[in-house]
Design a protein around this nucleic acid. Structure first.
Length: 364
DNA sequence: CGCATTTGACCGTT
DNA sequence: AACGGTCAAATGCG
């Protein structure tokens, strides 16, 4: 617990540092980006620690009271899975950079994408008219990430990611217990948005979805497109590399500057080309959650640190380019709080986004 | 009525 | 031929 406190203090120090230097850094997007990421990473680390502690206590207590041996095994089994994920990530830092735009790193990819052996250049656009787009060879255009399913509620629901998707297929996949669902962007027709995603629950861990994204959203680029798009890949790439909950290493070095600004943190988003053919890399895990409250709003924390006003919510003091950063902070906040019993931040964010999208669309 | 989901069929890739 | 991705008709929902 001492380490946790130390980490919190370190996060506060970083926030103060940012506040103190805000005027200097106001025009230095890169600096702001890296500092923001650092702060987010530190506090997500804290949250992870707290949640893990809480989970273990609660589960142990529950088990000792009721003796659910199977559940105990399940808990440890899933924990092992996450642990291996995290340690694997932590041990392979080459793909993680605080400043984003890392090199192509297949290590980052999990599941299907890495299973595909042949990688032929995917020069195809997804809008070749009559011909169906078969991109099994074009798997460069695929990126996979894993997201945790809420421990409560409907496990069948795919995790939200800020975009609106329309399901167009579902298929039983050989060797998988769970079917794979196929989604395309709801705005595909309106804006010819080629984005697609596949969602599949992991065999060995039903609490984790494996989401494979293909192509990039272009829907918001239209003049008639929704006015408040979720943070696009391009935005994220150029403005900030969102540090969504890092694959929190369960074994952490003390919160030294080196370790915290180091490699374990960070999400990785990388454009590879343009428009429909683009692909990107996102890698993050969402903490497992047994339905306990969250430890607060990262957005608020960051906002407070930056603005110095301690404001909570979007009206708080933000960067000069708040439009640039807020979606990212919101997303991070939502991600940090997702799966928790409060379970509101993600809904808030995305419902507001969806509302705007919907209304914008209905005005058409 | 419009939109989303379901599901069997179709088709390209391996 | 098997598999995976997509299509499109049927169906459901608000």
């Amino acid at each position: 617990m001492d380490e946790t406190i130390a980490t919190i203090l370190y996060g506060c120090t970083l926030s103060k540092e940012m506040e103190a230097n805000l005027s200097n850094w106001a025009n230095q997007r890169d600096v702001l980006l890296s500092k923001t990421e650092e702060i987010i990473a530190v506090f997500s680390n804290v949250k992870e620690r707290l949640i893990i502690n809480q989970q273990q206590e609660v589960v142990q207590e529950w088990l000792s009271n009721s003796g659910h041996q199977q559940a105990l095994e399940l808990f440890h089994a899933t924990d092992q899975n996450m642990l291996s994920d995290h340690t694997a990530t932590a041990a392979a830092p080459t793909g993680f950079t605080v400043h984003g735009l890392p090199q192509e790193s297949d290590q980052m990819m999990v599941g299907d994408a890495s299973r595909d052996s042949s990688r032929v250049a995917a020069a195809t656009s997804s809008s070749s008219q009559r011909q169906r787009t078969r991109c099994r060879t074009g798997d460069r255009d695929r990126r996979t990430l894993r997201v945790g399913a809420p421990r409560m509620g409907n496990l069948e629901l795919p995790p939200e990611d800020g975009y609106t998707w329309r399901k167009y297929g579902q298929k039983e996949i050989l060797g998988s217990r769970f079917p794979r669902a196929y989604y395309r962007c709801t705005h595909q027709k309106l804006y010819h948005c080629p984005a697609k995603k596949q969602v599949q629950r992991l065999d060995n861990d039903p609490y984790v979805f494996e989401v494979t994204y293909r192509s990039q959203h272009t829907c918001y680029m239209s003049a008639t497109a929704p006015t408040v798009p979720p943070p696009s890949v391009e935005e994220i790439t150029h403005q900030t590399t969102t540090t969504l909950p890092p694959p929190a290493p369960l074994i952490l070095a003390p919160p030294t500057s080196a370790s915290l600004s180091g490699h374990w943190l960070s999400m990785d988003i990388k454009p590879q080309g343009d428009q429909a053919g683009t692909s990107y890399t996102t890698t993050f895990d969402i903490q497992r959650d047994f339905g306990h409250g969250s430890v607060g709003s990262l957005a608020s924390l960051v906002t407070a640190g930056v603005g110095g006003g301690g404001g909570v919510g979007p009206s708080g003091g933000r960067f000069g380019r708040e439009v640039d950063y807020q979606p990212v902070v919101d997303m991070a906040d939502a991600m940090f709080n997702s799966g928790s019993s409060s379970n509101t931040s993600m809904d808030k964010i995305f419902s507001s986004i969806d509302d705007k999208w919907d209304t914008a669309e209905k005005k058409e």
